[in-house]
Computed example of a mutant assay.
Amino acid sequence: MTTPSEPRGDRLDPGLAAIMGERRQLINLAYRLLGSLADAEDVVQDAYAHWYAMTRQQQDAIASPGAWLTTVASRLCLNVLSSARVRRETYVGEWIPEPLPDPTEWINGRSDGITVDPADRVTLDESVNMAFLLVLESMTPAERVAFVLHDVFRYSFAEVAEIVGRTPAACRQLASSARRRISAAQAPATPAARQARIVRDFKQAWEAKDIDALIGLLDPDVTAIADGGGVVGAVLRPVEGVEQIVRSMLNLDGRLRELTFLERTVNGRPGLIAQHDGVTVSVYAFDVAGDRIKHIWAVRNPDKLRPWTVGPQH
């Protein structure tokens, strides 16, 4: 089978650049639909495989290859979402979406260490912050696809209907239901500079084991969730309440002595990473409301940390 990197025969494919130019958009879409960069990359690869499995005549008959690829990728995402619920029933501990670094902080694995923004990294904005993605996780697959396609990527309900196989009116209802979920879960936005200051203060208080400072930074009903995936050690259930979380943090003191904590952008918001011998072993995302941290998400599953471990983070 011909692949995107192997045009037919020895002649150049004049449409190859245009087709591959859709990759960033497709990765952006698939990540928001699936919450996993690895799954998103697999879906996009599969969509391209469908394209290159067609004859040149079949390809030429498609008026908008980008729209065709989007339709195929979205339908593949629907299938993945439907099976993901079954897979996550057997997942060890809590499942958290795969965290992403800011493109300007992603450093490739080449020896020159040049900071790059590769085409298969997701553009970060509010629609990929961790709190938003977790609300998407609570939706049905059809709700999630209808909402993301219409509200995030601005597809018309007629276009959404063609993709999900429902009527435009039904897709409008799905998106409306999803919008209500988002609205109910969203707290007033805290300015990014204030979020960064609070996360920095949290890091310093944790490193100093300053209990009073930690209590002052955490909401009384704060929740912390860790995702080790059964691969590395992590608390299997959410930890709730400021006292329980501070106690848990202090109990980790022995493990933390060999770690270096760095401030990084995580899914478009201020966060932290923990490194051991220069390798990222944990990524922390935060939900800040006012001047307090309401949620902490710690991803330790190494399978979800590929974008953070491909090269040194400085």
Rank of each mutant, 00 (worst) to 15 (best):
A189N: 13
A196H: 07
R172Y: 05
I182K: 07
F202W: 06
D201Q: 12
Q195F: 10
R194I: 15
Q173A: 13
A189E: 15
Q173G: 09
A185Q: 10
R194Q: 15
Q204R: 14
Q173L: 13
P168N: 02
P188G: 09
P168F: 01
A205Q: 01
V199R: 03
A196F: 06
R166G: 06
D201T: 06
A193F: 07
C171Q: 00
R181W: 05
R194H: 12
A170F: 07
A205F: 02
S177L: 10
V164L: 02
P168C: 01
P191V: 11
P168I: 01
S183G: 10
W206M: 12
A189L: 15
I198H: 05
I198C: 06
A187Y: 14
D201C: 07
Q204T: 13
K203P: 03
E162N: 05
R172L: 05
S176M: 09
R180N: 11
I182N: 06
I182P: 06
R194M: 15
A184R: 10
A205T: 05
A189G: 12
L174A: 03
R200V: 08
A192R: 15
G165I: 04
I163D: 00
V199C: 04
S183Y: 06
P168L: 00
R166M: 10
A187S: 15
A187Q: 14
C171W: 00
A161T: 00
A189P: 11
R181S: 07
A178C: 05
Q195P: 12
A185E: 09
A187C: 12
A192N: 14
Q173C: 08
P168T: 03
A161V: 00
T190A: 13
A185P: 07
A175E: 00
T167N: 03
R197E: 14
S177Y: 07
T190S: 14
S176H: 08
Q204K: 13
Q173P: 02
R179W: 08
G165W: 04
A169P: 07
